[in-house]
């Protein structure tokens, strides 16, 4: 069975958009996070594992997410699987960050 990520030869006949696109801060931070987690000195996540997390995303997410959005969701999945963070503490932290940023933006 062809995986959602396996695009070689697929009938996507649109023109290639060659516009240059500088990295956002979000993209750089996700990239840095993965580099740090996969560094041999830590060995928390291997590149193959990152790919498995990306390639098993539901099709609507695979094509709906941008490149690094796929990565951060794969990293989340792997850190939960490995028990590095728990779903509960992560969800609580996300809500905490949301409130903090909302408070900062109205300051």
């Amino acid at each position: 069975m062809r995986g959602v990520h396996d695009l070689g030869g697929q009938p996507i006949d649109e023109e290639i958009d060659r516009a240059e696109h500088a990295q956002t801060f979000f993209e750089k931070r996700v990239d840095a996070l993965m580099r740090l987690l996969s560094d041999p000195s830590r060995g928390v996540i291997r590149v193959d594992e990152l790919r498995r997390g990306v390639e098993t995303l539901p099709e609507k997410d695979y094509f709906g997410y941008s490149y690094y959005e796929r990565w951060i969701h794969s990293i989340r999945l792997l850190l939960l699987e490995k028990g590095v963070v728990s779903e509960d503490e992560l969800n609580r932290r996300i809500e905490g960050v949301r409130k903090r940023l909302a408070a900062e933006s109205t300051r």
């Binding site: 590095v84 992560l90 996300i94 960050v97």
Partner: peptide
């Protein structure tokens, strides 16, 4: 408001720093 993806990255990064991974 930041996207869910941005919030997720910030939350994970903060937790990993607190846990001493980097």
């Amino acid at each position: 408001p930041p996207s869910e993806h941005v919030l997720l990255e910030i939350a994970l990064r903060e937790l990993l720093i607190e846990k001493g991974l980097f």
